[in-house]
């Protein structure tokens, strides 16, 4: 098995795909730290599910499977989904979790209908849009990998630029506003970053599991530190490791989707952290109590 995996590495395309997954996981882990602390884990899941109809619609309108077109569609419906959640919370007596639940199911349901229609269409079989559900990193071609990698670096840069500001608006939004920080604008930037990760991760990880790649790494990192900067970079590292190992394994086994593999790796790191984490792990806590 190992021999087989190592042999794969000689392929230039795989090396590219792995680099894409590495950068995606890194950016996702970094942004995810803020998402987790802002308690927006579920929202990020809704944004991911709401991106899928956009992929299908992008294909239906332009009749071609060009990644930029599909990703623009994904961005639009993802933002619409997020906006509708706010609208439901404001104008009904529903709580946020109910509003998110509705949006997830409605958007996912409609995207499955759309994808089925595309599938039965003459050109449908070549579309291969199903890879957007669970992710298939190997289906990324060189051009797409470039797009993912460059976008991930941009998202990383924006997050680093706003690091101190995000810390303030998430810890104490009222105080931040009192200090004159543009809190609404900064919340918008964070929202943009989440949509960005969802959209560039959609073909590698898939809509169902991309939220797990945003949330699991920071969750695991939290067990090792009480410092936000350490947590954020550790989370980025865990995201990158999960991305690379998951992608590598999934490409070496035919038909194994990438998303589930990445999430399994991230979850294993989470379980190790939960048990052995040096600051909040269950074992260290038990030792302190006794």
């Amino acid at each position: 098995m190992l021999e087989h995996l190592l042999l794969d590495l000689s392929s230039a395309n795989l090396r590219w795909v792995l680099t894409g997954s590495l950068l995606l996981g890194f950016a996702s882990g970094l942004v995810g730290s803020f998402v987790l602390l802002k308690k927006q884990s579920l929202i990020s899941d809704a944004m991911a599910h709401a991106a899928l109809p956009g992929v299908a619609l992008g294909f239906l309108v332009f009749h071609e499977k060009s990644l930029p077109v599909l990703l623009i569609g994904a961005t639009i419906t993802s933002l619409i989904g997020t906006y509708l959640i706010q609208l439901i919370i404001q104008h009904s007596k529903l709580e946020a979790d109910a509003a998110i639940g509705i949006i997830i199911s409605v958007f996912f349901g409609s995207s499955i209908v759309l994808l089925t229609c595309i599938q039965q269409h003459a050109s449908g079989n070549q579309a291969g849009l199903n890879t957007f559900i669970f992710g298939q990193a190997a289906s990324l071609i060189g051009r797409d990998v470039h797009l993912v990698a460059v976008s991930a670096v941009i998202l990383l840069g924006i997050t680093m630029l706003f690091f101190k500001e995000f810390k303030m608006i998430i810890f104490d939004p009222n105080f931040a506003k009192g200090m004159g920080l543009p809190v609404t604008f900064l919340n918008g930037v964070l929202m943009f970053l989440i949509v960005g990760i969802v959209v560039i991760g959609i073909q590698t990880v898939g809509v169902i599991l991309i939220a797990a790649l945003i949330i699991t790494p920071p969750l695991a990192a939290r067990y090792w530190t009480e410092k936000l900067s350490v947590m954020a970079w550790l989370s980025a590292l865990i995201g990158a490791v999960s991305g690379v190992i998951g992608t590598w394994f999934s490409t070496s086994i035919p038909d194994l989707p990438t998303g589930p593999m990445i999430v399994l790796v991230a979850s294993s790191i989470f379980i190790i952290s939960l048990l052995f984490g040096s600051k909040r792990g269950l074992i260290i806590k038990a030792v302190h109590v006794s």
């Binding site: 500001e165 810390k167 998430i170 810890f171 104490d172 009480e226 410092k227």
Partner: peptide
């Protein structure tokens, strides 16, 4: 602000909280 308005489980130490009050002097970015 009132003490219960923030998440005290936030990964941050006392000095970093106080530094937030210095934000205007430190500046954006």
């Amino acid at each position: 602000p009132q003490r219960n308005e923030v998440d005290w489980d936030f990964p941050i130490n006392a000095r970093d909280v106080v530094l937030m009050g210095r934000y205007r002097k430190i500046g954006f970015f």
